Computed example of a mutant assay.
Amino acid sequence: MGTRASLLITCLVDTMYPGVGRASVAVLERVGVTLDVPMEQTCCGQMHQNGGHPDDATRLMRRTIDAFRDAEVVVSPSPSCAAQVVEHYPHLAERSGDAGLLREARALAARTRDLSTYLVEDLGVEDVGAPAFPHSVTYHPTCHGLRLLGIGDRPQRMLRNVPGIELRELPQATSCCGFGGTFAVTNADVSTAMMDDKLKHVRQTGAEVLAAADSSCLMHLGGGLSRQRAPVRPLHYAEILAGVPASDGRLPKALRAGAR
């Protein structure tokens, strides 16, 4: 396709779930996208903003804008981080009173996509040529993607094209998992209760795999599944599209060699 994009990898993926980053690269390169990953990027500032520290979030926004200044389009495997750029950067910039920063924040917001939107809407691709995944999967639509970015069923549309997959509907799918960034720390009891409700519905499906678009929500839910000793594996949908086995969080050797 001759398309170029820059990857907003997110600090959580970079430090804790690098397999999600490698899977995103593998999928994007498979459909003909030439990628670069600016090394200057760090955190988007979402956690700082959620925690009531807008000045710190603004400093991180400035760094992110600088890192992606030359990017034609910015793609992220995390709708929550993409939503921070698209929805919240313009507000942070406006709050700063810096007219130039506001122009740059709006420009970056207009060029930023979550992975599913970029693939399905920008590139028009629903079948990414994924290898067979002969497992039952239920999908949790995470809040930022659902409510702020409006990604709808784009991830599921791609998953339905994976050979051998069985998608099972998740009861009360649109309810929050309880993570909410700092909410899970400052309101631990409420967060845990919300997670327990979500996991009850996940287990009702009998699915082998719980998929979602945000590694943060999967971290939260995956911890709960582990404590419950539930036989359900959390996987980012990009990992399924890339060909990660349901029993192993590592990329197949061929994909590891091809990912940057």
Score class of each variant (00 low, 15 high):
A230L: 11
D248M: 07
R203E: 15
H220K: 09
G51F: 02
T112Q: 13
D36F: 10
R227T: 15
R154D: 04
K253N: 07
S96F: 04
P18V: 07
V13Y: 00
R160V: 12
R111C: 13
T138G: 02
V85L: 08
R229L: 13
R157M: 11
A105W: 05
M158G: 06
V125R: 08
G100L: 06
Y17M: 12
I151C: 00
R111Q: 13
I9H: 03
P155H: 02
E208A: 14
R4F: 15
L199K: 03
G258Q: 13
S6D: 12
L7N: 02
C143Q: 11
A193R: 14
E104T: 02
L101W: 01
R256Q: 12
D14K: 07
M47Q: 03
L241A: 01
T142L: 07
C11L: 10
T192A: 15
T142A: 15
V185F: 15
Q41H: 08
T64K: 04
D66M: 12
T15I: 11
R30I: 01
L12W: 03
L28M: 13
H53N: 09
L241G: 01
A132N: 11
A109N: 09
Q156L: 15
V120W: 00
F133I: 05
T182W: 04
C81L: 06
C43S: 05
P141Q: 06
R22Y: 13
P231V: 07
C143P: 05
I65F: 02
S76Y: 09
T117E: 14
L102G: 03
D36E: 13
R154K: 12
L115E: 06
A207S: 15
V232T: 08
G97W: 12
A107T: 14
G51Y: 05
Q46N: 05
C81I: 07
A57R: 02
G32Q: 11
E126N: 07
G129Q: 09
